[in-house]
């Protein structure tokens, strides 16, 4: 069964086809990796999926429900969690408060003015932090965290609304190699546990091939290959235009905003 069905997704910047007629499906319970060289359109694609960027054409169906054209916050309410390439958290709050905020929002109590926010859903938030092994740092100010911890916090936040699918934009970027493995293992466990799907982009091929169930390769805005990691590894086109270039996989040109 597919949790997410994308058809004909396109985005043009002036004359540049950043994402051109992309089709794919994310199966329930799988980790699908999205890879591609610099400027291939990965982040643009991601930003359209959660509504941050308006698509020029195409359809995005979440469990048969069209979500294209919705605002990010509406997409989130449909059950799509998101982490960012450059981590985005509420820096003036503590770690646990960041998670509590997401849970408060999930329960639609954002306008509530009577209770103390700090004591709402504390246990639930704590459990989520335990899930990502951040419980020790629950009361630290978010602005003081190490980068890898912020990424784990983002994961906990993304899980707060019981998502059906997680979009993770380079979840392991900027982390030490062993941290990357740990984070992806953690993600994989959670996915298995909760039965949700994950779509993630990643530059580290070790991470991709050791954790993804399937891999999709994007080049110049188009899907050039989609299949099992072993198939992709063998794919000559992929090797020539992507693996062979030795490109530095840095920020993409578009879609970081």
């Amino acid at each position: 069964m597919s949790s997410l069905v994308v058809k004909g997704l396109s985005k043009y910047f002036g004359g540049v086809k950043a994402v051109n007629n992309v089709d794919f499906e994310v199966q329930k319970g799988e980790l699908l990796a999205l890879i591609g060289p610099n400027g291939a359109g990965k982040s643009t694609c991601f930003n359209m999926l959660n509504g941050q960027l308006a698509a020029d054409a195409g359809s995005i169906k979440l469990f048969d429900e069209e979500i294209i054209g919705l605002q990010p916050r509406q997409v989130w309410r449909k059950g799509v969690g998101r982490t960012f390439q450059i981590a985005a958290t509420f820096t003036s709050m503590s770690v646990i408060e960041n998670v509590q905020m997401a849970i408060i929002s999930y329960h639609k109590r954002l306008l509530s003015m009577l209770p103390f926010a700090g004591s709402l859903y504390k246990e639930e938030a704590y459990e989520l932090l335990e899930l990502v092994s951040m419980e020790d740092q629950a009361n630290r100010p978010c602005g003081m965290l190490a980068y890898g911890d912020v990424k784990r916090l983002e994961l906990a936040i993304a899980l707060a609304n019981d998502p059906k699918i997680l979009l993770m934009d380079e979840p392991a970027a900027g982390m030490a190699p062993n941290e990357r493995i740990a984070l992806m293992q953690l993600t994989a466990d959670i996915v298995k546990d909760k039965g949700i799907s994950v779509l993630f982009t990643e530059h580290d091929m070790d991470v991709v091939f050791s954790h993804a169930n399937r891999v999709m390769v994007l080049n110049r805005g188009e899907v050039i290959a989609l299949g099992l990691p072993s198939e992709i590894r063998e794919n000559e086109e992929v090797q020539s235009i992507y693996l062979g270039t030795g490109a530095v996989y840095d920020e993409e040109l578009v879609g970081n905003a």
Partner: peptide
């Protein structure tokens, strides 16, 4: 300021991206 609303307001100040991504209008 210490209520969920105050936190939400502060959240919008801290990071629009994050606020948007957890369903805050």
């Amino acid at each position: 300021i210490f209520s969920p609303f105050g936190y939400t307001l502060r959240g919008c100040r801290d990071s629009l991206l994050r606020a948007d991504a957890i369903g805050i209008d």
